Computed example of a mutant assay.
Amino acid sequence: MSHKSTGALSRQYFLYFAVLGVFLPYFNLYCYHIGMNGLQIGTISAVRSVVMVAFTLLWAALADRLMIRKGVFVFCNILSAVIWVFMLSAEGYGSILWISVIHAIFLGPMIAFLEAFTMETLEEDRGMYGRIRVWGSLGFIIMVVVMGRVAELYSLWLIVPVILAGFIAQAVNSFKISGVSSRGGGLPSRGIKDIITARSSVFLAVGFLMLVSHGAYYGFFSIHLEKEGFGNLFMGVSWAVAIAAEITVMIFAQVFLKRFVMERVLLFSLIAAVVRWGVLGLTSNAIIILLSQCLHAFTYATFHVTSILFMDQLSSREFKTIGQSLNNSVQYGIGMMVGFFLAGYLYEVAGTAFAFIVSAGISGAAFIIMWAYQAKPSGSLQEPREPLG
């Protein structure tokens, strides 16, 4: 593991999540301000997720079979920047929907490939994952605060060109990522069969529900705050508090992974989600909202780190990309798709507060499934393994 290799990975995480720091809090708000309703916003987000699921797995299968992971990764980074150019002139629901769909074809696999590159670069130092991934959180928090202030002073229209600049920077840096080749030589169906077990199925089901519960947050949190009377600056600060909590966990991930078994980390994360979404659905107090954002350390950070390392354990070397792509597709693809559709519908019929209450119930259901499975004598998710880093 070289400093040069980890440096390129850290920069790519920084750039990828810096773009998300603009996109997640402000793009749906931008769509809302140009006249879209909640169902249209939810549909765009959900359809993007569908496309990202399908093409993440297709790109991963192609890359692992032909041993061209880096080539596919660079190609997708370049095309994502090129296609986003058309968003500069998009004005209505139809045009933004189609551009988003085509863009998702190439955006989808980028994070799964990056996770696979990172796991293989770290090798036996997998516990160091959090210290590389934390650069993504830093990128997110910087951009969410900066763009909150920029949007307050100038206009939400600036987010589209800022996102474009981020995609261009990612494309440039993608050439510097060290590609790790698989043995290849066959279809990846055997690797998928090995990955899909009772343990992994329960985990993926729980991850699916956890991300469904995040649909209201990622899709409508900023809109929720605006309807409660908060400005763009408070929105930016709220998102920043969440990412600051996430950064803390990422830095110390190696410590808690050595001290706590996987099931306890997951169960605690799910309980934190129940509390967090319940708070957002029941109060409009600024201080309480900011305090609830600290729970992002558990609803996202601990859950995410555990997910990445768990799938890495399950995947043989030649199927690392498939493993991470499967995890990413089920959680951030299908889970977010259902979450966005559900949140968009609930927003239209009952408002954002009710959507967050439903989210609390969904994460509660995930907790029950996880608890019931791990309570069985043979129900442990975690196989015996060597200590992480």
Rank of each mutant, 00 (worst) to 15 (best):
L280F: 15
V255W: 15
F234V: 13
V274C: 06
V274R: 00
A253W: 07
V241E: 03
I251Y: 15
F260V: 08
F260E: 02
V274I: 09
V261Q: 15
R276Q: 07
V279C: 01
V265F: 00
W277G: 00
A253Q: 11
I243H: 14
L267C: 12
W239N: 03
I247T: 12
L282F: 10
L280I: 13
L257I: 11
F256P: 00
M250D: 12
E246H: 05
L280P: 03
A244H: 09
I243F: 15
V274H: 00
F268P: 01
A242H: 10
A245T: 06
I247Y: 13
V265T: 06
V241H: 07
I243C: 10
L266C: 12
F234N: 07
S238E: 06
V275I: 14
V279W: 01
G236S: 09
A272Y: 04
V274K: 02
A242Y: 12
A242E: 10
R259Q: 09
I243Q: 15
V241N: 05
F234W: 02
A272C: 14
G281M: 01
I247F: 14
M235W: 03
F268I: 11
A244P: 02
F252M: 11
I271S: 07
G281E: 04
G236Y: 07
I271Y: 04
F256G: 00
M250C: 05
V261K: 15
A242R: 06
F260H: 04
T248P: 08
M262Y: 11
A242D: 06
V255P: 10
S269L: 00
I247D: 11
F256S: 00
R264S: 13
F268N: 03
L280D: 05
W277E: 07
R259F: 13
L267D: 00
F252R: 11
L280W: 15
I243L: 13
I247L: 13
A245F: 07
V255S: 13
M262K: 08
L266F: 09
L267K: 14
V255C: 12
A240N: 01
W239M: 03
F256Y: 13
M250L: 10
F256M: 02
V274S: 05
V255E: 14
F252P: 06
R259S: 11
A253C: 10
V274F: 05
F268G: 04
W239A: 03
F252T: 11
A272Q: 05
L282A: 08
I247A: 13
A240L: 02
R276V: 03
A273R: 02
F268L: 09
F234I: 14
I271K: 04
V241Y: 10
M262W: 12
K258Y: 09
A273V: 02
I247W: 11
G236W: 04
I271T: 09
S269M: 01
K258D: 08
Q254E: 15
S238L: 06
V265Q: 00
V249R: 05
A253R: 09
F234P: 11
V279S: 03
I271F: 12
W277N: 04
K258L: 13
F252Q: 12
V279H: 03
A242Q: 12
G281P: 01
E263W: 13
F234Q: 08
L266G: 09
I247V: 13
L267P: 01
S238M: 08
M250T: 02
V274Y: 00
V255G: 12
V249K: 01
I271W: 07
A242K: 08
A253L: 09
E263K: 14
G278T: 07
L257C: 04
A273S: 14
A245C: 06
G281Y: 05
L280C: 11
